[in-house]
Amino acid sequence: MFVSVTAFFFSLLFLGMFLSGMVTQINANWNFLDFAYHFTVFVFYFGAFLLEAAATSLHDLHCNTTMTLQPLLSDNQYNINVAATIFAFVTTACYGCSLGLALRRWRP
């Protein structure tokens, strides 16, 4: 959740700067900043995807509580984790493609 909210906030900040025309007033290499932003978000989303996939893979793990074996994740929690893993993968792939395009813009 932290990764997605932070990425959303900084994306809105970048969009606001581009729409307001501040990029023409600030002397910076915007292609590099775009590449650095997409690289950072890609790394964080990739880590979140791996953690979510690892948590989903624990579905068949059983924990011993009061002498009965219960699955670590219920079926409903497992279905939610599968959906979250798929969406995290799609988001990571989109940021990876955007990272590739930013690299292409930055490196002529």
Rank of each mutant, 00 (worst) to 15 (best):
M1D: 05
M1G: 02
F2L: 01
V3C: 01
S4Y: 02
S4C: 01
S4P: 00
S4H: 03
T6H: 09
A7W: 07
A7N: 13
F8G: 14
F9I: 15
F10P: 07
L12N: 15
L13M: 15
F14E: 15
L15A: 15
L15C: 14
L15W: 14
L15R: 14
G16V: 11
M17R: 11
F18Y: 12
S20Q: 05
M22G: 03
M22H: 04
V23E: 09
T24D: 12
Q25P: 00
N27S: 12
N27H: 11
A28Y: 05
N29P: 07
N29D: 14
W30D: 07
F32W: 06
L33Q: 05
D34G: 04
D34C: 03
D34F: 05
D34S: 07
F35A: 06
A36Y: 04
H38F: 05
H38D: 01
H38Q: 03
F39Y: 04
F39D: 00
F39R: 00
T40S: 08
V43P: 02
F44R: 03
Y45C: 06
Y45M: 13
F46L: 14
F46S: 15
F46V: 02
G47T: 10
G47N: 09
G47L: 13
G47H: 05
A48S: 13
L51P: 02
E52R: 08
A53N: 10
A54S: 11
A55L: 09
T56P: 03
H59Y: 09
H59K: 06
L61W: 04
L61K: 06
T65W: 04
T65A: 07
T66C: 11
M67L: 10
T68I: 11
L69M: 14
Q70N: 11
L72P: 05
L72Y: 15
N76V: 12
Q77C: 06
Q77K: 12
Q77E: 13
N81M: 13
V82E: 12
A83Q: 10
F87Y: 11
V90F: 12
V90D: 04
T92Q: 07
A93T: 12
C97I: 06
C97K: 04
S98T: 03
L99G: 01
L99H: 01
G100A: 01
G100S: 00
A102Y: 00
R105G: 07
R105D: 07
W106I: 08
R107L: 11
P108T: 09
P108N: 13
